[in-house]
Every structure is written in C-alpha cells, then in structure tokens.
Design a protein around this nucleic acid. Sequence first.
RNA 1: GCCGUGUUGGUCAACCGGUUAAGACGCCUCCCUUUCACGGAGGAAUAACGGGUUCGAUUCCCGUACAUGGUACCA
Length: 524
Amino acid sequence: MPLFLCSIFPKQYLCNMSKVRVRFAPSPTGGLHLGGVRTVLFNYLFAKKHGGEFIVRVEDTDQSRFVQGAEEYIFECLAWCGITADESVVHGGPYAPYRQSERKELYRQYADKLIADGHAYYAFDTPEEIEAMRESRKAAGSGSLQYDAGIRMRMNNSLRLLPEETNALMDAGKPYVVRIKVEPTESISFTDMIRGECSFENANVDDKVLLKADGMPTYHLAVVVDDYLMKITHAFRGEEWLPSAPVHVLLWKYLFGLDEMPQWAHLPLILKPDGNGKLSKRDGDRLGFPVYAMDWTDPKTNEVTKGFKELGFLPEAFLNMLAMLGWNPGTEQEIFSIDELIEAFSIDRVHKTGAKFDFEKAKWFNHQWIQKLPIAHYSARVKTILGGKGIDVPDTIYLEKVLELVKGRSSLLSDFYEQSAYFFAAPASLDIDSVKPKWSEEKNDFFVAFMELIKNNIFVAADMETAFKALAAEKNIKPGELLAPLRIMLVGAKFGPGVFEIAALIGKTETLARIENALKAFNA
RNA sequence: GCCGUGUUGGUCAACCGGUUAAGACGCCUCCCUUUCACGGAGGAAUAACGGGUUCGAUUCCCGUACAUGGUACCA
C-alpha cells in the first residue's frame, strides 16, 4: 500500500490574529538603531498584510536609565518613515498606562500569584554571594554557572529557608528579588514564525529574576504580563531574545496558559560591515555612516549622533533598504514602495541569519528613489539643505528644473549641494589649471565672438550649441577644445550636465557674466 | 566554559535532492557621452571541512571548524 506524505507548513499562526506589537526600551543613550526600525517595519508589514492592529510600546525601565526625550524621538523617527501605530505610548489608548513605572503594582500581583502557586520564590542573596556561588561552581568544574535547581537549595532564599525565617528577613527589610522556579525535568518547546520548532531543556534554563529589589519587573515578567493584558497575538523581537524565550513560555504556562501565548518571531540581527558582531553606534562613527534613523542628541552629554534622514536619505529608500536586509521576496524585484512591501511581505521569507550592513547598497537604494520619485516630493528638503550651506533659493520652479537636470548624479539629498551650487551662484573657484596650458589668443577671440553671438541670438540650448559649433568651424578650432573651457567658465570644474543646458538654465546675463569673468582669469 | 542559532561570490542573496548555481551592490573592460554621472553590453568572483543517507547532494543527517547571540536585580 502506497504511503503518502505531505508536508504542512504551520500556517495556523495567521489565524485569530488581532494585534501585533513591537516593544522596546530606548538604549541607555537614546537614539533609534537600524535594527530597531527594521523590527518595527517587519511588525508593521505583517500587521498591515493580515489586517491586524499595530502597537508600538516604548517603555522606561527604571529611572536611572530613563532618557529624556527618547520616547518622542522614536515616534518622530517612525513618523518620518511613514509608520504610524494604532496604539502607542504617546497616544494613550485603551491599555494605558504604558510606562513600566506606572504599572509597577500590576506586575507585583502576578509575581505574588506565581509565588502562591509555587512557581516562584523570594531570594535574598547579595550580588557578592551570587558571584561567590559562580566562582565556587566554576572551581568545582561545573559546566553551568547559573542560579538554578542545582544550586538553589544552597542559596539564601525562601525555598531553603523556613517560612518564619523568610518572614523575619522580610520584616527586617532585607532586600529581596523574586525568581522563577524552573523545574529541571521538563523541556520547553514553541513554534517560532521564522525558525519553526524551537526546543530547550529546562535544565539549561536558570531561575531568572522576575521582580527586582526595587520592585520593578525585569523584561521577562513585564513582557508576559503586558502582552497578556494588552491581548497581543504576535510578538516580533530580535534574535538576541531567543535564549530567554523558554522563560517567557514558562511564565505564560504558569500564569495564563499556553493557549493564550502570542506567536513569536525572532528577527535576525544586523551586523557590522567589517569584522564581527552586532552593528553598533560606534561602528557608524568609525566607518562614516549613520546607524540611527534621525539625528539624536544625547541630553546628558549633548553629543549629536548623525541620522539617515539628515544625511540625505529619503524615507522610502531607507525603509526599502531595511526591508531587503533580512527579507527577500523571492523575485528579482528590489525596489519596493511601502505598499508594495505590505503586498509582497511574507514572514516565512524572513531569513534566520544575520546580515552585514552595506552602506554602499543603502546609497544605491536612495539613488534609485531619487530617480523614481517626483522632484516635488523632496525639493523642499533639498532647499533646506542648500539653505544650510548658505544658498538661498528664492524660486521653487527654478530649483526643480535644476534638480531634474542633476538628479541622476545624486545618491544622497546632500549630494545636491555640490551638484547644483553653481546654478545659484557663480563658481567660487575655477579649475584654471586644466585650461591654462592649452589656452591661446585664438580661443580668447572665439569666446569674445561667442559672447557677441549669444547677446543677439535666441537663448535656447540647442540653438546655442549649433551656433557654438558653427562659430568654432569658422574660427577653425575643434569644438572639443572649446567645450572644456566653457564648462570651467560656467561650472568651475569638469562635471555636471551638458554645458548648453546649464547655460540655458542660468540665463543669458549670468552666462555672459561668467564667461567674461573667466576670460579675465584665463588671460591673466 | 556552558546553552542557543546559523554557515551559497567581498556584501545582500535565489534555487527547499538532478541547474551551465539566478539577480543586486561593489570591482574591472567596452559602448554611449568632446566633462562628471546615468544608461547599455560584457567580465572576474560563491556552496567552510570531514563523514554518512541516496542512483544522485549546495540542498537531508551527524561530527568538526568558524561566526553570532545569550549566559545581569540591561533590554
């Protein structure tokens, strides 16, 4: 009898979806890292694709780590990218408050429940005592240095202590934490949307701290309690969380039941372009590219860290680049608008492996989007950039004509400065050296005659070129010998679009002025 | 050290047992352009290593190596 096998990919995680969330705390110095934006982006794409709500929580973990302005900054970055959350810390929403410090008592209730059910316990060990425990385990040749079932009955906690001893300690105000009690005999498994079945031996999971001595929860407790209370169905986070996922699964099991647990997706990391390791802010400083979405000023040090936006990235390109880092549509298409991304996105095409960040490719994406989008989409930003460089742009129509002419030469919005500065003011310096050796009286005569010509002719690029060449033939000089000097006269250097197009755009008066001025320099 | 995850050109990557192993970035050559770019046409460059399984392995399994993450009263 034939045996038929079919492989069924676990698609059931798409069922019953109502909420997708991303949650993160600002880094100790603030700022929004590339990886953070990408996590939000993948959440967003997934939520939009499947019609779910999309929640962004930014939390302050404890007062010492809280960074002034970090929450608002993160939402500014997301707004720039065009990502808006259905619920977020700044908008309140039905599940507010969002700040951990304001939810403190909530977490304690669940910690108490765990203790009452025998799944957690009080521990009074000082950091020094724990360190000593690790040292002695290491000395004893133990492979594991964790606070776990193998050691807890020898530590200073409510499991080993008599109830009256525990009470006495607490009455005396001895600081304590609440730890989860992991039973070492079971194993934990769950299905990750990206990695499939993941399983862990409980023996390798330690008794993590759930509630700190100051009464604040650790991430482990907070994420489980919050996700339950906020009815989260899908949770995306970085791969660095995979090792602690078993603790979270255990907490779900003890507190709310595994059926209530959200689907997990552990996203791959973004790595340094050179060397090894996760991409960090320092790498950006070191290698000369941004790592944050937008400029960030550390309120404590006033140190400014550059962002993609300020460097001249378009949000469309930024998102497009990020999406292609760790995900692939399986087709040859690389340029995607946000709507196209939502359409094409599929969680099972997200990679498991970390990808090295390539700034050259990022610039290529931006170049593509500069060509693709209408000029009007970014001309205001370019105007601001030029303004910052001391170029005042009075006429938007003129600006847009200029941008149209030079956009193929620009990868970053900031490139427009050097590509278009000479349209707004005569070049500050002329590359005389590349003209001077071949300069002659005949050439000077040519340009004097050419000036007369354009004074009396219609000022259009094609006509000017025809007239220019005719005059060159008449004077018996090769046009090529004259084109380079003319370019230097108008641009100051050897780059830019066709010279006659430039002349047509800057106008008759300006063209004549620049030629006249340059002739003086050439003849000097 | 221990635990987890992973390994296709320099980088991003497709192909989920039989392919001349896609495509993109970057690099090189040529064409276009009397500039610089864009664009077009080519080119160099890849399955970590060792065992299995199989008629057949880049693809599946096991080791090794390497990388990466975790191993905090940080997230």
